[in-house]
Amino acid sequence: MISIKNLGFSYTKKQQPLFHQLDCELQAGSIAGLLGKNGAGKTTLLKLMIGLLFPTEGQVSIMGHQPAKREPSLLQDIYFLPEEFYIPGISMAKYVKANAGFYPRFDQDLLKRLISDFELPETKSLQKLSYGQKKKFLISFALSTKCRLLVLDEPTNGLDIPSKGIFRKVLAGSLDEDQLVIISTHQVRDVENLIDRVLMLENGRFIMQKDLFDISSQLNFSTASSAEGENVLYSEMVPGGYRVITPQTNGNSNVDIELLFNAISHGTEKMKAYVQ
């Protein structure tokens, strides 16, 4: 669905390129997590993917379209929820009336269900809602558009703890096979058990692009009393012992994305070799 080839980008000609020869392929039917430290370029990459920024070299293709052309036939299949958003001072019903028509697959019933799941007050003006409520409404609207590509930038920022759980539930429960969701976040715990492909961005390049299934079949994430041992690829002290990563020997284990992220960011070459 998304194909990025030799992507290069810098904000100004004088600046060092933010991205250089970046390659990526993402297929429909999955939820990809774009992870990276603050300032790694996650939002910039998302904007390049959807055509809000233009690459300085290389190309981006979404469903065969060049996003930089901003063709309506593509835009009606993309919904981008930015971290900081604009919302007009009208009611939810009016917002839906004004905007739903642009998306041919818009699902009104799904929207009602999601608004109910998020316990949003339907009658209030959107401007009177809290930041978190506005975000929940926009997440509901985004999912209801049924766009083939949903791009969510830090969607859990501003959500309270119960809402983060509801977010994971509604996202997993309302997607179709032909949809691709890209979630950019630095709060990896919020998207654990939700994403099925991990993209890690650091210093303008992907340091990892892997399906969670592949990771769990190669690496074992467990808690141990000691961080010593020749098989330990990476360890972190936690209350009551150590979280360790070792080569997988028997089946699969749940992937601890935060530990994996730290391991790749700070870990050894041996660790990195596993995830290339």
């Binding site: 809000l52 901003r70 009606q76 993309i78 604009y86 642009f102």
Partner: peptide
């Protein structure tokens, strides 16, 4: 006039 509203406007499914 604002970055956030510009994103909405540019992503709105309409031609230039």
């Amino acid at each position: 006039r604002s970055k956030e509203a510009t994103i909405n406007y540019l992503m709105l499914p309409g031609s230039v």
